[in-house]
Write a protein that binds this DNA or RNA. Sequence first.
DNA 1: TGTACATCAGTGAACGCGCGTTCACTGATGTAC
DNA 2: TGTACATCAGTGAACGCGCGTTCACTGATGTAC
Lengths: 209, 209
Amino acid sequence: MSARIVDSASARIRERGIESIKVAELMKSAGLTHGGFYFHFKSRTDLIDKAFARAMEGSVDQWQRLAEMAGPGERLQSIVDYYLAEQHRKDVAHGCALPALSAEVSRSSTSIRRRFSAGLEEMIQVLSEDMRGSSKKAAQRQAIAILSEMVGALLLARAVDRADFSAEILSVAREAVLGTTPRGQRNSQGTTKSAAEHRASGCERCSET
Amino acid sequence: MSARIVDSASARIRERGIESIKVAELMKSAGLTHGGFYFHFKSRTDLIDKAFARAMEGSVDQWQRLAEMAGPGERLQSIVDYYLAEQHRKDVAHGCALPALSAEVSRSSTSIRRRFSAGLEEMIQVLSEDMRGSSKKAAQRQAIAILSEMVGALLLARAVDRADFSAEILSVAREAVLGTTPRGQRNSQGTTKSAAEHRASGCERCSET
DNA sequence: TGTACATCAGTGAACGCGCGTTCACTGATGTAC
DNA sequence: TGTACATCAGTGAACGCGCGTTCACTGATGTAC
């Protein structure tokens, strides 16, 4: 039960921000009354720490799963396909913690910032294992550049108020990260485009909320 | 006086988030009592809209000033020197609204999202005028890629808990955006490095809060 | 197999505090005549 | 030049509500003997 509350809170903070956590509301959504909250957690801050940790864990795990599923040399492609997709843009609650929470992290407790940094370093590590750079350091730097591009693009794509603008930002970032890829001529799987991928590629005629 | 309150609020939301605005506290910091607030603004939300608008205006203006000060062909360099610097990383309150507020914008009112999008488009426009791309569209796409990289890098550099890690992220992003620039061999002005630039370039021996 | 007691996982009322908003009031400055 | 009145730019007390936290109490399940 305690794990269920943490899971629910970890989705909530990504979707609505760390300060959006309300004890009573959270307990109600778990089918409980608020009084019992303090049986599971020391305080609201204690829960927030755990929820944040879970959100970072989930993001790193997802990242590692994608890397492992793809063979070496295809990790970047696999991660980018997930990361810079309309699906991920829309599902903030279950998506990567980096674009959703970084700004708040920079004003949070040292325990949260420490956890954030550790998770970020793991992601860089996973990505850099796929880079053919002259040295390990060079590979890491390449990974940092790619990660920054992806985080920035997803962040902006989510904030913007028009779906075609969002799609264009994601499309540009995919191109920038994977190398020059003329739009509408290839896709990641070598298969036909799905409707979602079509929209994601920035077709101006298709505009939605 | 009303303008002073908006300025102060626009710095505050960048530094501590939109929801950090407290009517009484804000008025006190302007040397007034909270009762008079409603003489200047319809409501707290009204002030927030105006403070956000000011923050976006300020960011776009700064961007344009840097572009105009530099000659054509040197705009990118000029903007990057400002954007990806330790100074900008630290001074969130007077810095670009994009990394500070994008995550919150994505859950804000349509009026705020509209203003955000308009400002973002202006920035892309200014940057794209300096790109030598085959077409206007290509130049814009290049500008979007560069902006995403810069926003993502600054965001991560601020969230991380070690100064040397921050510096490395900024250094990597500068390199990625300006083309391959071996560290410690050149700087933007062709002059000797300042202490700030030295730190910014990621020297592991210099670590600070 | 039954009895007594402890622990677990809650319930729901109450408390206190922060904060947005309202409101009656005030002193200074402008305007009409 | 003086008088009356309106408007501006506030003050500070009070109200109401949301929300984190506390607390006395409860029923179910486990354990000792």
